[in-house]
Computed example of a mutant assay.
Amino acid sequence: MNQRIRGAFDDDEPTLLYRLIPALSVMAGSLTTIVPVIAGIGLLPPFGLLMLLAWRLSQAEAIAIWAAPLLGLFDDLVSGQPTGCSMLLWSLCFIAFDLVDQRLVWRDFWQDWALAAGALAFCLILGRLVASPLGAHVDTVLLAQILVSSLLYPVIVRLVAWIERTRDPA
């Protein structure tokens, strides 16, 4: 039995729901793609990816690195992307963020925003290359989607901060 002996001043172990809330919020963000929205062009940002980036950049330990491919699989199944596309791209983003965390001593909000914008552009461009033929004329819409998604990042960070504040048991 490898149970750790708790001392008088040790924090209580977090509940299962406390640990699942970040993943459930990313899954809820991925589920926004099934909401019927009538639009002339596809500018709907990838809310699942935005939630994942916001959790990873604001609370690094909230979502484990091994959870990115599982959440990516859920996003692939819900959004209609080729299976494995989000799994690979989200995992690569997490690995890149870990490398950045090793190099930088600290980051501020502007650096997080720049990292998120780069990760969004990376995932959307490579997702476009995988999902649609090269002859498709979607580059202008893709650039607009990257811009809208990048500008929406601070709102999603505020939402994640609110979720974090409400889930905090203290």
Rank of each mutant, 00 (worst) to 15 (best):
A117L: 02
Q111F: 15
Y153K: 00
S132P: 00
Q102V: 01
L151Y: 06
G48H: 00
D98V: 06
D11C: 04
T140W: 10
I38S: 05
A54I: 07
W162R: 10
N2Q: 11
A161W: 13
L57K: 11
L50D: 04
Q3R: 11
G84Y: 02
F74H: 09
L134Q: 07
M27T: 13
V141K: 14
R107C: 00
A116W: 01
I63N: 11
A68Y: 03
P154I: 00
D98Y: 09
I41A: 13
V78H: 00
T166H: 04
G84D: 04
L52F: 15
S79I: 02
A131P: 04
C85Q: 08
L147E: 07
W106D: 05
I38C: 02
L57H: 12
T140F: 09
Y18W: 10
G29R: 10
L24I: 11
E61R: 15
F47S: 01
P69S: 00
M27G: 12
T15Y: 09
D101G: 03
D112M: 14
I95V: 14
S150K: 06
A170R: 14
I125W: 08
P69M: 00
W162A: 12
W66V: 07
T32L: 11
F9C: 02
R107N: 02
G84L: 05
L71E: 07
I41R: 13
D108L: 07
A23Y: 04
F94D: 04
A144P: 10
G42A: 14
V138W: 13
I41Y: 14
V157R: 11
R167M: 01
L152G: 09
E13C: 11
D101H: 07
S30A: 14
L52Q: 14
W162D: 12
W110I: 15
S86Q: 05
A39W: 03
C123Y: 05
E13D: 14
D75T: 05
S86D: 06
V37M: 05
G29Y: 07
A114K: 05
S58W: 12
R165C: 01
T166M: 03
F109K: 13
A131W: 12
P22C: 09
W90A: 08
Q111R: 15
C123I: 10
V37A: 05
D168S: 01
T140D: 13
I21H: 06
D168G: 01
I95D: 08
W66N: 05
G80Q: 04
A67H: 01
L20I: 10
R158I: 14
L71N: 01
L31W: 07
L71I: 02
A28D: 07
F97V: 08
G135Y: 13
G40I: 04
P36M: 03
D11T: 11
D10Q: 09
P14C: 05
R56K: 15
F74R: 03
A54K: 09
R56M: 13
L53H: 12
R167I: 01
A68E: 01
L115V: 03
L44V: 13
A96I: 01
R128W: 07
I34A: 10
D101N: 08
F109H: 12
L104S: 00
Q81D: 08
I163P: 00
I38V: 06
V155M: 05
I5E: 13
R165W: 05
L57Q: 14
L16A: 14
R6Y: 12
L120E: 00
A39D: 09
L99R: 11
A131V: 06
